[in-house]
Amino acid sequence: MKVLVPVKRVIDYNVKVRVKADGSGVDLANVKMSMNPFDEIAVEEAIRLKEKGIATEVVVVSIGVKQAQETLRTALAMGADRAILIEATADVHTDIEPLAVAKLLAGVVKEEAPGLVLCGKQAIDNDMNATGQMLSALLGWSQATFASELAIEGDTAKVTREVDGGLQTIAVKMPAIVTVDLRLNEPRYASLPNIMKAKAKPLAAKTPADYGVDVAPRLSVVKTVEPAGRKAGVKVGSIDELIAKLKDEAGVI
């Protein structure tokens, strides 16, 4: 079984986000970029499936700017076999929307015929939490989102999902889309020899036109602002003072 893993190049999660002065978005010029952390977990899970002999090949795909090939090389260094880059924009500030991404991925799925697509549950830039569900809809496949456990048994994937009150287990028919949550696994670091080897692994370059997909956005950005700041309050010296403040000043207990 082939496993397809979409990976997104996003601002590194440790970088402090700054809104651009013109309000068009967040400043991404000369900022450290990394693989979306949830996608790293998806890549790790795919590699583990290969190590267990369940997956035969792990193909990673990224959609966005040319520089996303660095993200793909990271996935290849972790252990993916092959990469596809769909260069959909030349501007690092253009975010391709989940609907367009899902349409492009549907095109890749038709070509590659994977038995499983593993996606991160959300990208930490637009926080949309939509691509996996949308891809699943376009393909008419079953979906299991927010996975914290995944077991593949024949043509069924048994998935434990992180839901609001606790955990839900479902059984989905393969082929399926599974989106992964934080607790599924801990991604490995790529070793130096593997980073070197990754440079020789195949990386195919494509464009949206190859899949006949229009990536024009449906949502236009009116403005982007910093959230209203919260000011630091006062330090209290004791529990007695704290309780008194909460009772008398704030009136919340």
């Binding site: 601002i11 402090k16 986000v17 809104v19 978005g25 967040v26 930490i124 830039d125 637009n126 926080d127 449906r218 949502l219 236009s220 950005v221 009116v222 403005k223 982007t224 602002v225 910093e226 959230p227």
Partner: peptide, 16 residues
């Protein structure tokens, strides 16, 4: 809607 973990608030207009 908030983006980047609430570090920015974006106003978007839908053409759908």
């Amino acid at each position: 809607r908030p983006i980047y973990a609430g570090n920015a608030i974006q106003t978007v207009k839908s053409s759908d």
